[in-house]
Nucleic acid binder design. Structure first.
Lengths: 236, 236
DNA sequence: CTATATATTTTGACTAGCCAAAGTGTCAAG
DNA sequence: CTTGACACTTTGGCTAGTCAAAATATATAG
């Protein structure tokens, strides 16, 4: 019933890496469609397990109090489950930033690395990393880093597809951690913090062309462009 | 039969943390009594498992080619097993040094931390850490760090109990990673690299008193003193 | 209101690790 | 040469996590 580990492989006192991964997954799926229950199919797909496995795990997490599981309906995190998930997300994102800033890895590769490290890292080590990075609030992809108490800083961001042609905006967040996609962006000088101009936005061609202040330029299809969130200095 | 992981919890392509721990354990036990086979009892004690579990694991590792297992005799690492063990040791020790030097943890606490991290860290991350640390050859306890190819630098070290009174030697290695012991040494300014003078060595009292160049001083019983290896500039 | 498609749940089975306890070698002392 | 003592191995059984396939709901189309 979701016991804490005694410390072989995972950091001591933690839930098993498996359980942690399900909680993280559920949190992320919940973000995609806020309010609604997450079905077993989605969990199974996201976790790359069979539907039966997802059902079994949700039942178990239900008994442990981490999720509310409605048979044939779906599940969502309880308050307790959400708190756990935010801690895991915090570790994941701090580790990602650490890998980029301190160890100099490319932002396209840190997601995978962080997936293993997030389970092994102790609170003490995490605290040191946090300090070393100067208590950051966003990771290399612009995703917010929950505070130690699990609070998340909200930013008002606009989807790139909602920006009119000619708009000058700042790239704030990339909602796709696929290595190839991030490499593409990086090659054209696009990363959170960069200022870009929407030089062309053509609904019929289904494409948006971006010119970055640092010289790069790319054209993205709408489905790729929706992955990018930007910050406008103010007005619509 | 000792498969490589696909990457849930442990770093991808690695043996399971459990298997890695047995290999590391076997390596360490072999170091204690070079040449002889390691009995199941010792493995069971070191791994904190029942004897039956040790037997089962040694059989399995035998089939995988990592150890030579002689029923009712004991086991020892094969060439392949030794190579694996040295990689694990390399990760463990580089992580320890990293935790001390970059994250500023105390040397008494890094052993436990490294025990979880050593399984989660990828080759790429390890390479960056190695570089960041300047390709070090010893960890915070003075234990040698195997090279990427698994070579270990040999140093001629003397046991502290073999030093005559008045000898001025350099502390090189501490063969006990117990937090309390390391804290004690640290509190008296004793750590690898420090020069110390054997101010008193009394076989009858079973005690050795050390004065460190940086002011500290401690008296250790023989059983504690054997844990310390020192370097003499030359002559006996 | 039925029939079918789809999502979900159940069932039976498997692997890696582990334990307790019963069984079996081995060796030294008598 | 026999007898313990002790170390080791075997056996049966447990949990976490997984899958495949059968059983069951649910929703939607007709």
């Amino acid at each position: 019933m979701a016991k804490r580990t005694k410390g072989e492989g995972d950091a001591p006192g933690r839930l098993s890496s498996t359980v942690e991964n399900y909680l993280k997954c559920l949190y992320e799926e919940q973000q995609k469609c806020p309010g609604e229950l997450v079905g077993m199919g989605r969990i199974a797909t996201a976790m790359q397990v069979s539907p039966g496995t997802a059902t079994a795990m949700m039942k178990m997490l239900g008994n442990s109090g981490f999720v509310d599981y409605e048979p044939r309906g779906g599940s969502h995190l309880t308050k307790e489950g959400q708190e756990e998930a935010l801690q895991i997300l915090r570790r994941h994102r701090l580790v990602e930033l650490f890998l980029v800033r301190i160890l100099g890895l490319d932002w396209s590769e840190v997601h995978t690395e962080a997936d293993s490290l997030e389970h092994a890292i102790s609170d003490k080590v995490l605290a040191r990393i946090d300090e070393l990075l100067g208590f950051p609030t966003v990771d290399p992809h612009g995703d917010p880093i929950p505070s130690p108490s699990g609070r998340i800083e909200h930013r008002v961001l606009t989807n790139l597809t909602d920006c009119r042609q000619g708009a000058r905006v700042r790239l704030a967040r990339v909602m796709d951690e696929t290595a190839a996609f991030l490499q593409l962006l990086g090659q054209h000088g696009l990363q959170p913090g960069e200022w870009v101009t929407v030089s062309e936005s053509n609904e019929i061609a289904d494409a948006i062309t971006l010119v970055s202040d640092n010289g790069g330029s790319v054209t993205l299809g709408t489905s790729a462009a929706t992955k990018l969130l930007v910050e406008r200095d103010d007005e619509a």
